[in-house]
Design a protein around this nucleic acid. Sequence first.
DNA 1: GTAATATATAACTATATGATAATATAGTAA
DNA 2: TTACTATATTATCATATAGTTATATATTAC
Lengths: 107, 107
Amino acid sequence: MSTWENRLNQERATVFKALGHPLRLAILDELQNGECCVQDLMQHLNCEQSNLSRHLAVLKQAGIVEAKKQGMFVYYSLTIPCINGFFNCVNQVLTKKIEAHTVINEP
Amino acid sequence: MSTWENRLNQERATVFKALGHPLRLAILDELQNGECCVQDLMQHLNCEQSNLSRHLAVLKQAGIVEAKKQGMFVYYSLTIPCINGFFNCVNQVLTKKIEAHTVINEP
DNA sequence: GTAATATATAACTATATGATAATATAGTAA
DNA sequence: TTACTATATTATCATATAGTTATATATTAC
């Protein structure tokens, strides 16, 4: 297993790890209907603001979700608007993330 | 969010969680070339037998991988032989798992 | 300026996960 | 039977993650 593959698997694992929590999947389900602010999610998912905020941070960090501030509100949306879910999108998420940050540099 | 959705997200999360580790992804990469016994994986991935065994158990538990004992050896293989990776397969894995164990009963 | 609202962060506790080493189980061979 | 090999399991420790509460930041309205 090359260093390259190692790093790729690290990146991939980060995305999967971010998907590996029921609440985060529920958040993504919500976001498929369009962008939401934390308020909306709190109501729909019936959960603490602070907890939600932390999970959103995980999703954002993994590159699955992006945040856009408008006035007092922060609107979250899927980075890649998948129709049937995000299941087919992992590779695209990764590609985007790599493009954005050039995390991985292959000789 | 209904109880049904809750349980579905739980199940989905389990699969994603299982995918959320670099070594486990590396294992899956290997298994895409065909079934392997633990020996093979130890050599190819250069890792401890005991560690490997635990990670294989996680993958098996999530329904991503299955084990078949032949004599002294245990051969692991992907439950769903995906060509380009398992990324598109999460739903199928879940479906299979649900069919097998009837974990989720919807009214 | 103050008050109110939306979100993020910090601090804490409980639980889960990961790596390693040692041991147990099971199959094979002599 | 004993010895050997392949795999699984257990115990331990270190670290990560999750949920909660309290606090901080930032925006708006007054």
